[in-house]
């Protein structure tokens, strides 16, 4: 999993059926130096708010288990909201 900051949402009415009525969040991935290092669009399952620090799971099989499906084009899922992440040199707090 990766620590990320939710920096936006993606609105999409035409999508592959799996994504119907799912909330898509833009997650800025944070590296070990505390810098933003790329982003991913992840499906939210914990009602994360924009601006929050979250845990992003970026692996298909695990994500499919979360949704209880055998197949589906899902990789990145927001699975947790971070209260505090201590990386040693720096730490990230929730809101």
């Amino acid at each position: 999993m990766k620590v990320a900051k939710v920096s936006g949402t993606v609105v999409s009415t035409i999508s592959f059926p799996f994504f119907d009525s799912k909330r898509l969040l833009i997650c800025d991935l944070i590296n070990a130096r505390g810098e933003v290092d790329g982003y991913t669009i992840a499906v939210d399952v914990v009602d994360a708010g924009v601006g929050e620090t979250v845990l992003v799971l970026d692996e298909g099989n695990s994500s499919r288990q979360i949704f209880g499906v055998d197949t589906g084009p899902i990789r990145a899922t927001v699975v947790g909201i971070v209260d505090d992440a201590d990386f040693g040199d720096f730490s990230l707090q929730g809101p």
């Binding site: 920096s7 609105v11 035409i14 999508s15 592959f16 994504f19 833009i26 924009v50 084009p73």
Partner: peptide
């Protein structure tokens, strides 16, 4: 299932809202 494809368009974006 399981065809050799490594990129797939799975949605059309209506709007991207960033903070």
């Amino acid at each position: 299932r399981f065809v050799p494809v490594d990129h797939a368009i799975v949605g059309i974006v209506d709007e991207v809202a960033l903070i």
